[in-house]
């Protein structure tokens, strides 16, 4: 029994010692918390809670917390988060009681309509299956020096699986794209642009050269005819030999308006048409008409 005898005095001493150390440190922490108090912005925390929390960095800030701070301080507006849905942006604006001025979500668009059937590619390419590598050899295996190479660097980079290569052309699935902008960096030809996700129509051509040159290797280039600009001068603009949709305009062109232009080069398309199989089908009437 002797082996189990406990000296109670030592237990009491230890308990007292630990207790008093704890008490002293506790008081110290309490005092320090009072003196060195950091004013935290409760508004920033509120915003952080509402943000998607993906820390993707698409806004240009170091992460969601940094973005929340910037929004709370008024440096950025809630709509500048590329990933947030419209509801989230509205909720943040409401919570902060501010007006939501940049309200649109962004979406990537590949400004090229030249798939395998529509373009002629004079180079026999047998190299690495990556656009950035391919573009180092004579500028890439495509007749058009500005068109989509279709080797899928953007599709592999996209963390949301929103880009697909269809018949040698990258196409964006708008409903999956969150506008993070990773594909923009991956494309060696700088074809991908982040635009207002509400934009229904785009001019799918990035080649600034003259129309006869483009026609040599592509059936669907923008020929700079200015038909769209004449019909809707505030919605389209043509610079040089290449037209673009004016994404900064107060009103974006609708699908009906685009159809009414009757683009002779078939490069003014809706996003859905760009995605559609018909467009890539050699038997499609558009294709036949051109050939």
């Amino acid at each position: 029994m002797n082996g189990f005898m406990v000296e109670y005095s030592s237990v009491v001493f230890a308990a007292l010692a630990m207790g008093s150390i704890g008490l002293v440190l506790g008081i110290l922490i309490a005092v320090a918390a009072k003196i060195f108090k950091v004013e935290s912005d409760s508004r920033a925390e509120l915003v952080l809670e509402l943000l998607p929390g993906a820390n993707c960095g698409g806004c240009g800030k170091a992460g969601c917390a940094d973005f929340a701070k910037a929004v709370a301080s008024g440096e950025l507006s809630p709509g500048q988060c590329p990933v947030s849905s419209r509801e989230t942006v509205n909720a943040i604006a409401q919570a902060l009681g501010i007006e939501n001025n940049v309200s649109f979500r962004k979406c990537a668009v590949v400004l090229c309509g030249g798939d395998k059937n529509q373009t002629r590619n004079p180079i026999l390419y047998n190299g690495v299956n990556d656009c950035r590598s391919a573009s180092l050899i004579s500028g890439g295996p495509k007749g058009c020096a500005y068109g989509c190479l279709g080797l899928g660097s953007c599709a592999r980079t996209c963390p949301f699986g929103a880009i697909e290569i269809v018949n040698g052309l990258a196409v964006v699935h708008g409903e999956l794209c969150v506008g993070c902008g990773k594909c923009v960096m991956a494309c060696p030809r700088k074809l991908i642009k982040l635009v207002n996700a509400d934009a229904q129509v785009h001019i799918y051509c990035s080649n600034p050269e003259k129309a006869p040159l483009k026609r040599q290797y592509c059936n669907v280039p923008c020929i700079g005819c200015r038909k769209c600009e004449k019909a809707f001068p505030d919605k389209f603009k043509v610079e040089g030999f290449r037209g673009t949709v004016d994404y900064d305009a107060p009103q974006l062109p609708t699908a009906e308006e685009a159809a009414s232009v009757k683009c002779p080069a078939h490069c003014l398309l809706t996003a859905a048409e760009h995605l559609a199989v018909e467009h890539n089908d050699p038997d499609h009437e558009n294709t036949k008409e051109i050939q």
Partner: peptide
């Protein structure tokens, strides 16, 4: 293997 093409990519990058 397209080794030179890989290397050119790395050099450019």
């Amino acid at each position: 293997r397209p080794l030179v093409q890989h290397i050119r990519r790395a050099k450019a990058e």
